[in-house]
Amino acid sequence: MSEFALQLLLTFDATLRLAAPLILCAMAGIFSERSGVIDISLEGKMLSAAFTAAAVAHLSGSPWLGVMAAVTVSMALGIVHGFACITHRGNQVVSGLAINILASGLTVTIGIALFRQGGQTPPLTSGERFGPITWWFVEGLNTIPLIGTIYRELISGHNVLVYLALAAVPLSAWLLYKTRFGLRLRAVGEVPEAVDSAGVSVVWLRYRAVIIAGLLCGIAGAYLSTGQGAGFVREMSAGKGYIALAAVIFGKWRPAQALGACLMFGFLEAGAARLQGVELPLIGEAPVQLMLALPYIMTVLLLAGFIGRAHPPAAIGEPYVK
């Protein structure tokens, strides 16, 4: 196999690793926003979850307990968001921002109090984090050119949370489009009055949406510190929650399209990492910063209608008043 093809394959592999938290957060964003609640707190929920997962995994020795704790904390933050925006009809952007800033402060403050390591958790041992899962027949298929390599590098060898992230997409789509809950959720983000007058509680529907968002962000956060990384470092979400938000918009609030956006954004990041300092023919030094900024630039262009049109749910951002 040529060197280029292998490089490309490895980039795809990295894409998947980088996209996994984006995918989970994007699905979270879709649930929340489809119900009419803006969620810029994907970032903060993910960061809190990353810390919780690493801390609990370290203290208990079990990454699974870590995930469960992370999900609990993230859902609790979702409920705080709901309490502010659904129950008290507060500004959804302000509430999300508060959660993001709270998460920045809380993770470091509690981290220092618990571990005295400048806000980090101690590095996790392999038993405390999610290791790669080697699929069946990797050895057997290895002899087949191309397919064997693809199977080994791209499909096999990720940790369980990556597969969970990929599974979250069809699951979200099924929930949104094939179930009673999904029909009501989509309706409440468009015309909440219709849902209310049909005898369904707007408040409870939206709470369920922000709680599901919390659940998914929780897994995403756990992935950062106990799957992709080996321990928590401060600000480790590094804006991924906002990229996921961009992916939600870029995917026009639909799971499959959002998956595409996440993979594209992940690929840009993986490519940027690989091309750091590399001289490209014709272009010169690879424009790494431009590649990293592309998700944001493309989202701006899409929102402005220069490349297609994205229609947000009609009732988004508006508290429901009878």
Partner: peptide
């Protein structure tokens, strides 16, 4: 030993939550 300037972020977040969203 155990509280640092990040405490300020916490206070700031709480203020945004209570004075803003709530």
């Amino acid at each position: 030993q155990s509280i640092t300037r990040e405490m300020v972020l916490l206070i700031q977040g709480m203020i945004i939550l209570f004075s803003g969203a709530l």
